[in-house]
């Protein structure tokens, strides 16, 4: 009774199936990406790379010496800035990776919203991967950097450009490999 031809009718009735199929494949990709660690739908992707580091001057965090944005800009080699805290479980998890990474790149730490004595205890217990350590008690400098949680790391080129940004611990192989790929391209 309809003027729609049977083949077109058939085509129309298959649209829901096609839609569900596409969604299913996408979900499959997301789930497998999530279990492989390559896809995180909650990654904020803060657009740090390419930006200049913000101005700051932070006090020292024992057992290290503090630093300011000027100190960072004056470096002649790339520096990895690592935001950490003693209360953060993933920070403990990435310590081993940081300690071995120390051989390839200089790491400067910033203790995020942490009591100095707690942060000091944490660093002494875990082994110190940091060349210099500053304390961001209020967490305000971190906001200027675009930090949303700890651990979070930034690779700074000489002159003060952020050339790489990673949220999440280096115990995740994907994060570590991403950093190493960037490091390989930068003349150390």
């Amino acid at each position: 009774m309809s003027e729609i031809s049977p083949s077109r009718r058939r085509f129309l009735m298959a649209i829901p199936l096609a839609g569900a199929g596409i969604a299913g494949v996408a979900f499959w990709k997301m789930l497998s990406g999530m279990s492989a660690g390559s896809f995180d739908p909650h990654d904020i992707h803060a657009p740090a790379a390419g930006r200049v580091i913000p101005d700051f001057d932070l006090p020292a965090q024992a057992p290290g010496e503090g630093f300011s944005s000027t100190d960072l800009r004056q470096q002649t080699k790339p520096v990895l800035i690592n935001f950490f805290a003693s209360w953060c479980i993933p920070c403990i998890a990435e310590m081993d990776a940081l300690l071995s990474l120390k051989k390839e790149v200089e790491i400067w730490g910033i203790a995020y919203k942490d009591k100095p004595e707690n942060a000091e205890g944490f660093i002494t217990r875990a082994g110190n991967p940091y060349t210099r350590i500053a304390s961001d008690r209020e967490g305000r400098v971190a906001i200027d950097w675009g930090v949303s949680g700890v651990p979070e790391s930034f690779l700074i080129a000489p002159g003060g450009h952020i050339i790489w940004h990673g949220a999440g611990g280096f115990d995740n192989g994907n994060t570590l490999n991403a950093l190493k790929a960037v490091l390989a391209k930068v003349p150390a």
């Binding site: 996408a26 896809f39 739908p41 992707h45």
Partner: peptide, 10 residues
Amino acid sequence: PFMSLLFGRT
């Protein structure tokens, strides 16, 4: 999540 999957942007 689809933006994230397709364009890598959140």
